[in-house]
Amino acid sequence: MDLNIILIVALFSIVQSVFGMGLLVFGTPTLLLMGYPFSDVLSILLPPSLTISTIQVLRQGKQQKHFALSLIKFCLPVLIISLAWTLFSKQKLNLHYIIAAILIFTAISRFSVHVSNALRQFIERNSRKYMATMGFVHGMTNMGGSLLSTYAVTQHQLKKEVLGCIVTGYLLFGIVQLGTLQYANAFNISLTTPVTCLVAGSVFMLIGNRLYSWLNESFYHGVFTLFMLVYAALLIFH
């Protein structure tokens, strides 16, 4: 049983409990830097990530059914194809700088109503292409959360709606990723897997969920903007 993995999962589970993502966003580059292959990174992080996302989706007062349907139709098929190609070819595209630029632009747009409205309208006019791009990026890099967060903050104002959008996306992403890993015989379960799931669920219930409830709307959006900039910096300097 790897104590380092458990500690990493516990730390980033706090972030995921508040923002709907964190385990994959920060866990992926962390484990890659530690020398883990991409398929092992997914095998380690997806189960605890799915644990938190499932709890969050079940606790939602209003389900994001229309958004989920759009993901199923336009995003998930592309995710499956791009992830399968990544696993079988063992190649990855470096999209970090592009993703970072998107995050920085989105964060800056939150300080300007005109820019924010223009970005929202652009995503709405190109929603199908945007969904497909999101699936491609997530399948190739496990970093599709960048585009998902951009979608969420431009389409929703309330923190509950932002979080609901993100956790819906991450739950569907995770299910499809696990299924693709299993199909490719690349899903590796160890004794650490159930422990990390238990740790992630416990951290959410004991710490993360309380922290989320404590944050008011304006402070939450400010912290979310900072989170996006930190995420961008991580990608640039990775």
Rank of each mutant, 00 (worst) to 15 (best):
H66D: 08
H66K: 13
H66V: 12
L69R: 14
I72W: 10
F74E: 06
F74Y: 12
L76C: 03
P77C: 04
P77N: 05
V78W: 10
L79D: 00
L79Y: 00
A84F: 07
W85I: 15
T86W: 11
T86K: 14
F88A: 09
S89W: 06
K90Q: 12
Q91A: 14
L93N: 07
N94A: 15
I98E: 13
I99A: 15
A101F: 02
I104C: 02
F105A: 11
T106R: 04
I108C: 09
R110T: 12
F111D: 11
V113H: 10
H114E: 12
H114I: 08
S116Q: 11
N117G: 04
N117F: 07
N117M: 05
R120W: 10
F122L: 12
I123L: 07
I123C: 05
E124N: 11
E124Y: 15
R125H: 13
N126W: 12
N126Y: 11
S127Q: 12
S127A: 11
S127P: 00
S127W: 08
R128G: 06
Y130C: 00
Y130P: 00
A132E: 04
A132L: 03
G139Q: 11
T141N: 06
T141C: 09
T141L: 06
N142G: 14
N142H: 13
N142V: 14
M143E: 00
M143I: 00
G144W: 05
L147K: 00
L148M: 15
T150I: 08
Y151N: 03
A152I: 03
A152M: 06
V153L: 13
Q155N: 13
H156A: 10
H156Q: 06
K159N: 00
K159R: 07
K159C: 00
K160I: 09
K160N: 09
E161I: 02
V162T: 03
L163S: 13
C165Q: 05
C165Y: 03
C165N: 08
V167D: 09
Y170H: 08
Y170I: 09
L171I: 02
L171R: 02
L172A: 08
F173G: 01
I175R: 02
V176N: 10
Q177F: 10
L178F: 01
G179W: 03
Q182K: 15
A184V: 13
A184N: 09
N185P: 08
F187G: 08
F187R: 07
N188V: 15
L191F: 15
L191S: 15
T193V: 05
V195S: 07
V195D: 07
C197I: 02
A200M: 01
A200G: 01
A200Q: 00
G201V: 06
G201N: 09
S202T: 15
V203M: 05
V203C: 07
